[in-house]
Simulated scan of single mutants.
Amino acid sequence: MKKKLLGDDRRAQLLHILKTSGKPVTGTELARIANVSRQVIVGDITLLKAKHEPIVATAQGYMYFHTSATQSSERIVACLHGPERTEEELNLLVDLGITVKDVTIEHPVYGDLTASIRVSSRKEVKQFLDKIAATNAAFLSELTDGIHLHTLIAPSEELLDEAEDALSKAGLLVL
C-alpha cells in the first residue's frame, strides 16, 4: 500500500506534478497518485492557489500556468453569439494560434464572473465542449444573452489583431 503524504509534503508533490506535466492533470489522477480522495486534492489546490501558485482548473484538469516568452501578448475581446456558435468561435481562435484563457460575463447581481477555459487546440476545444455537454452545464454567456468577454493570449499583437478581424468577419465580435 502506498504511503499517504501529509499536508505540505503532499502539496509539494502536487505542485511538482503540475509544473512538470505539460498538460492538464485531473483531480482524480492527482488523488490516485497521492493516495487521497479527490476532495482532499480540491482542498490542496485551493491552498496552493491561496499561496499565489498560478494553477488553473480547466475542463481537462488542473494546469500550472507557466509564463512563456512565446505567449507574451494578451487582449480582451467582446463577443456576442448563441451557444450554437461557441465551437466555431473557439476553433477560429485556436486555429490562428491563440490561447483562449477565460470567459467573463457581467452578471446583474454578482458583477463580473470569470471562468477559466484555457484552450489552445481543436482537441482541447472538443474536450471543453464535451465536458459542457456531459455535465449539462450552461455556457456563462447564456446568462447575458450571448454577450461575453474572452481573454486571448498570443505570441504577438499582430496575431491578436488577426484574431479580432476574423471574429469580426464571422459576425462574432461586438462592434
Rank of each mutant, 00 (worst) to 15 (best):
L18K: 02
V174E: 09
I17E: 03
N91R: 12
E106R: 08
P108H: 04
E142I: 00
T151F: 14
F65E: 12
R11H: 06
L6K: 13
G27Y: 03
E162T: 15
L47D: 12
V56M: 05
D9L: 07
H52L: 10
H150E: 08
S120Q: 15
L159D: 07
Q127F: 05
E164S: 15
H148A: 14
A69F: 14
Y62M: 01
T104P: 04
R10T: 01
Q39G: 08
Q127S: 14
A78Y: 13
N91C: 10
A78D: 14
N91L: 08
G7C: 09
A12N: 01
T114L: 07
Y110C: 05
P54Y: 09
A163Y: 10
Q71W: 14
L14M: 12
H16E: 01
Y62N: 04
I76P: 01
A133W: 09
H66W: 11
D112Y: 10
A166W: 11
S156Y: 12
Q39K: 11
V125G: 08
L173G: 00
L172V: 04
Q71I: 14
A134T: 05
E164I: 01
K126C: 04
E106S: 06
T104C: 11
R38M: 12
E88D: 11
A166K: 15
G111T: 08
R85C: 05
T104G: 04
E88A: 10
A31Y: 03
Y110G: 03
E29A: 04
L48Y: 03
I153A: 10
M63L: 14
A163E: 12
V40C: 04
D112T: 15
C79I: 13
T86P: 05
V94P: 07
D130F: 06
T86K: 11
E53T: 02
E53A: 04
I105M: 05
I41G: 02
T135Y: 11
V40L: 04
R10L: 03
G7I: 05
L48R: 00
T104K: 09
D95I: 07
K51E: 15
A170L: 06
Y64P: 01
Y62V: 06
K51Y: 03
L30Y: 03
L48V: 04
L143T: 00
L93N: 07
V125I: 07
K169G: 05
I117K: 12
T67F: 06
K2Y: 05
T151K: 15
I17Y: 00
Y110D: 09
I55D: 00
D165H: 14
L173P: 04
A34K: 02
L175F: 09
L140C: 06
G146M: 06
E142T: 07
L14Q: 02
Q60I: 06
T28H: 09
Q127G: 07
T135Q: 14
E87C: 00
D8S: 12
M1E: 14
Q13L: 11
Q71Y: 15
T135G: 15
K126A: 13
P83F: 13
I132V: 14
I17Q: 02
E157N: 08
E157D: 14
A170G: 06
I105R: 03
K49S: 00
R118G: 08
I147H: 11
A50L: 07
L113A: 06
R85P: 07
V42E: 01
G82P: 12
L47A: 12
A133G: 09
L5G: 01
Q71P: 02
E53W: 05
